[in-house]
Structures are given as C-alpha cells and as structure tokens.
Design a protein around this nucleic acid. Structure first.
Length: 553
DNA sequence: AAGAGCCACAACCGCCTGCAG
DNA sequence: GCTGCAGGCGGTTGTGGCTCT
C-alpha cells in the first residue's frame, strides 16, 4: 500500500490544511493521520472526484502554483502530487495508449543520445509524458535483459555514430558544449525529426550490447575530477589540448597489460582484436594515432550513457549519476565491473574508431557471454574462451559487419581523425612537455588525490618512465602485493589492483587473471563471468568501497 | 480454479535547481 | 550571499491485471 510519508515536501505545505471532505475518502490507501496533529495526507490513486476538482481548478487558474490547489479547492493532495496528476493524466492533448512503433523508435534513439533524460525526451514526443517514457524504457530494459537482447537497435547505433562525428566536427561551440560533451551531458540536442530518424532507422536488428559505455564517463569524470585542469583546456576546435599527452601513456599501459595477457593467453593478437585494442599497436607504431576527446567523447549516450547518465558538467563538482540500467542480478563480485571500468577506460578515450556504441569491442560468443559485458569481462571471457579453445571468437574489427553483429560499423578513420592526427603531429611534442605532470600521472595512491574519490579508483595503472617519457623518476612503481606464500595479496584480487601494479610483470597479472578466472588455470572455466557480472548493468548498492566514486562533489 | 510470475502503469520519494525575499 | 519555497526531474516502489502452470 501507499505509504504515508512522515515528512516530505508535501506535508510541509499542508501544515495549515484543515479537514477536507476528500481527504479521507479512503479510496485506496487513503490518508492517515500525519504526525499526530497534522492533517491526513491523501495518497494513493486519484479518484475521479479529485480529478474533477483538479481539472476545474486548472481551468480557472491555470497551471502552476500547485500548492495553492490544496488551499483553494480543499483537495487534499500535495502540490507535487497535483502537478504530477495534471501533467501525466489530466492535461489536454495527452496521447493515451501504447506507443506507436515510430514513437518507440524515437524513444530508443533519443535515449541513445540523451540517456535517462525523460523530460527532455518527452519534449520530442508530443502528448507523451516523461513518466510514460520512463516506464516504457524501464520495461524495455527488463525485457531486453531477459531476452538477452541489446537495448539499442543497430540503426540507433549507426545514427549515434554518424551524429557523434558530426558533433565532433562541429565541436567549436565553446566551453559549455565542450564540457558537456566531455561529460557525456548532451546539451547538444540533435534534431530528431521523425523523418530524419526513421530514414536512418531500419528493422530492429539488434546491436551488441554497449559493452563499454560504462567506462567513458568514469574516466572522463575521473580525469576531470583530478583538477588537472586539462579538461578545461579545450580549444575552439574542440580538441583537448592536453589530453593527448596522457593518452599515449595510457595506450602504453593498456598495451602493457595486454602484453601480459599475451603471455597469459599466448594469443595476444586475438585477444587484442577481440577487445578492440589492436589499434593500440598501431598507435604505438606511429606514436600519433591519438584522437582528441572530442572525437570519442561526443554526446552520444548510446556511447557514453547507455549505462551512465552523466548530467553534470565536469568542471564543477562532480557527481557520478547512477547507471540507468539497474542490474537486478546483483552479484557479490559485481565490484569487478566498477573497478575495472575506469581502468580500462582510456582505451575508449583514445580509440579513434570508437565513434559509436557498436564500435565498442564486443565479443560475440555462443557461450554464455555476458551480454552487458565490459572490457574486462570480455577480456576474461575471451581469455577463458581462448584457453578452453572452445570458441574461436571472431575479431571484432574484422567481423563487425558479420551477421552476428547487426550494428555494422566500418573502421574507417574519420576526417576528424585525420585532423586529430595532424594536430597530434604538430603538437605532440609540446603536449608531452605541457603534460609532463600528467603523463606520469598514474592514478596511484602515491599521487595525492585531488578529489574526494577513493584513491583506489585511480590505481589505474603505473606508467613506467619508459612508457611515459616525461614521468618523473621519483615515483616508484607499485609492486603488486604478495603474501609470503607468493599468492597474490587479497588486495590484488581487486581489478584496480590488477591494473595498478607493474604491468610489465606478467606474473602478477597472470596471477590476478588466474584468480579472476577461478584461480585454477587448468580447471574448466568457472562461471566467473556469469550473470552476476554484467558490466553494462549495475547494482550500485553492492558497490564496494573501491567503487564508491559517487562522492565526487 | 488457484497460485505464481510477469508486466504495465501510477504514484511516491528524494534531490536538485531557479528564484524571490 | 543566504534561506526558503515552488517546481522539476529521475529513480523507485506499489498495485492490479493478465498469462501461464
């Protein structure tokens, strides 16, 4: 039954409310005495009489000043409730009934761009309310999760991809937009006219789940939260002047990690391809294939916000919004997905190919590959698959247009990327100089945390001086902790620890992988990556302290 | 027929923001 | 600048209907 809140916004405004004939009609849930002397507060479903009163009032006085409704009509509902009732059910021009297919597609498309911005989405759907859209989406998510289907159709991914590039190409609108894009807060609102959308919307073939969407915001905001100021240095072309300096190092780090994986799996190339890291080799070879943030961190929520709904500019106090996709399949191990995501995020940031969700590496497997997988999960899954030899997983890059991957993407380097490359060619040396403090910034505990975030988050990697040319020599690489028996210290079981140590040490990495895989490399793969670990979804209530990064502000 | 489970929906709750005093 | 209020927004929960076993 509906509760009677003991203290709420509504009740505070009902202190002077006297008895009402409607206050206690006890329709369903009814009102109940409120804190003794206070008037009862009617809650629960609205009756037709209440509706009539509210409609009459609005006809006479117009919308707004909802708290006056109670005073003027005797309707014993709080102003908020009146407003909601009017907005969601009583106001004219409301479209009732199920969503049309066009509306559904539009919702999907809008969500891909906006995330859980229901009110903004509702603005694009005349006659529909944010609540309707929200309910529809939540239902859809549940349905997709049950069915093991991705949330975003391929066409939406493509749409997002193209528009991302457009955004990055037009990325000259000043700091506000830049920051917003960087934070994943899409103030940039593309014109989702129905024609435009439908023209780009085909049959609901499904894209792979947005496996890495949880990553970008975390890192983007994590970076920003470090007050390194490089986030502020977005020039008029939308390029992040200093971003490039860190990215090579991160690329190196990821590559170093993968080198360890290489030894671990003896099949690094496959693994890297499966993970979408293969470009990192190219990056290393050329030392310049670094995309500015504007390329990858565009406003697509399909990319940035399939999971997270970042809505705060990164300049200000940061607050990680909770993921929009609730994981009802919570798992004690679910911390994996949160700790690892930041660690893996750089790959997304630097990935010149990742213009859309579909470019996110996705391991399609006949096995029980987690649908909402993240990079680590895919890594582990891939490692398992490789080890077991049961699955010959196709290269994501080479098979992205295969039948199993409806979201077709071509790994065509965009013009923006060419520009970025030129930009990097021209400025990378100065970048390295300018970013000397940051290029060696390895998110270790030795680095004084600037934000209130748990430093664990930033145990991202230890970038050795060799990997990071400008890193100071004073910093000591953090060795993975091992107990005397040689087994990894429990702390190292955490994925952040996994990536925090000397990544050039394959043994520690292997140890961690082994543990993550069940600590027995010779045993059959254990369902470590079962349903309990769904990177794309989350149950934040189960977040371990290492993942408690919500308190950035 | 009865119970369980699923589903869509309505409504509530807490937090945030903008604004006026 | 601070405070309180009104409104808005997004997340969550409760309810009732429907379907399946």
């Amino acid at each position: 039954m509906y509760r009677v809140k003991s203290e709420s916004d509504c009740e505070m405004m009902l202190q002077d409310q006297m008895d009402s004939p409607l206050a206690d009609d006890g329709s369903s849930g009814g009102g109940s005495p409120h804190r003794g002397s206070g008037p009862p507060l009617k809650k629960g479903p609205w009756t037709s009489a209440e509706d009539a009163i509210l409609v009459d009032y609005v006809k006479k006085h117009g919308e707004g000043n909802w708290n006056a409704v109670q005073k003027n009509t005797g309707l014993f509902r709080c102003g908020k409730s009146c407003r909601l009732r009017w907005a969601n059910h009583l106001r004219p021009n409301l479209k009732k009934g199920a969503f049309t297919p066009e509306e559904e597609r539009l919702i999907i498309q809008l969500h891909a761009k906006m995330g859980n911005k229901w009110a903004r989405m509702a603005a694009h759907l005349p006659g529909r309310t944010d609540n309707e859209i929200k309910n529809y989406w939540n239902t859809r998510i549940k349905r997709c999760q049950r069915a093991g289907l991705p949330i975003y159709p391929a066409s939406v991914c493509n749409q997002s991809s193209s528009e991302d590039q457009q955004i990055s190409g037009d990325f000259n609108c000043g700091e506000n937009i830049s920051n917003d894009l960087l934070s994943g807060n899409s103030l940039y609102l593309p014109d989702f006219t129905s024609d435009n959308f439908i023209a780009n919307t085909e049959a609901l073939s499904y894209a792979p789940q947005l496996s890495a969407v949880s990553i970008s915001n975390l890192l983007g905001q994590s970076f920003a939260s470090k007050n390194c100021s490089f986030m502020d240095q977005v020039d008029q072309s939308g390029m992040l002047k200093q971003s490039g300096c860190v990215l090579p190092a991160l690329s190196d780090t990821v590559d170093g990690v993968l080198s360890s994986v290489d030894q671990f799996s003896n099949d690094s190339e496959k693994l890297k391809q499966a993970l979408g890291f293969d470009y990192l080799n190219e990056a290393n070879a050329s030392s310049k294939t670094i995309a500015p943030f504007g390329v990858t961190l565009s406003g697509s929520h399909a990319f940035l916000n399939g999971i997270f709904s970042a809505s705060r500019p990164i300049n200000g106090p940061l607050k990680m919004e909770l993921p929009s996709l609730q994981d009802t399949e919570s798992d004690p191990n679910s911390w994996l997905k949160y700790t690892l995501a930041p660690a893996m995020q750089p790959t997304e940031l630097v990935d010149p190919y990742l213009h859309s969700p579909i470019a996110t590496p996705s391991v399609k497997s006949e096995s029980a590959s987690p649908r909402n997988s993240g990079l680590l999960e895919e890594l582990l899954h891939e490692a398992q698959a490789l080890r077991s030899g049961k699955n010959q997983l196709p290269s994501v890059r080479s098979s992205s247009s295969s039948a199993g991957t409806p979201c077709e993407t071509t790994t065509v380097v965009s013009p923006e990327f060419d520009l970025c490359q030129e930009y990097w060619d021209e400025h990378h040396s100065s970048f390295l100089n300018d970013c000397a403090p940051f290029s060696g910034y390895s998110f270790t505990e030795s680095t004084p945390p600037v934000s209130a975030a748990s430093p664990d988050i930033f145990q991202l990697s230890k970038i050795s001086p060799a990997q990071s040319p400008s890193m100071g020599s004073g910093e000591q690489a953090v060795e993975p902790k091992h107990d005397t028996a040689g087994s990894p210290h429990p702390e190292n079981l955490r994925p952040d620890a996994l990536f925090s140590g000397n990544t050039a040490d394959p043994s520690s990495f292997n140890d961690a992988i082994a543990i993550l895989l069940g600590n027995d490399m010779n045993a059959e793969p254990k369902p470590v990556l079962g349903d309990g670990i769904a990177f794309g979804s989350s149950s934040w209530s189960n977040m371990p302290h290492a993942c408690e990064i919500s308190e950035f502000k």
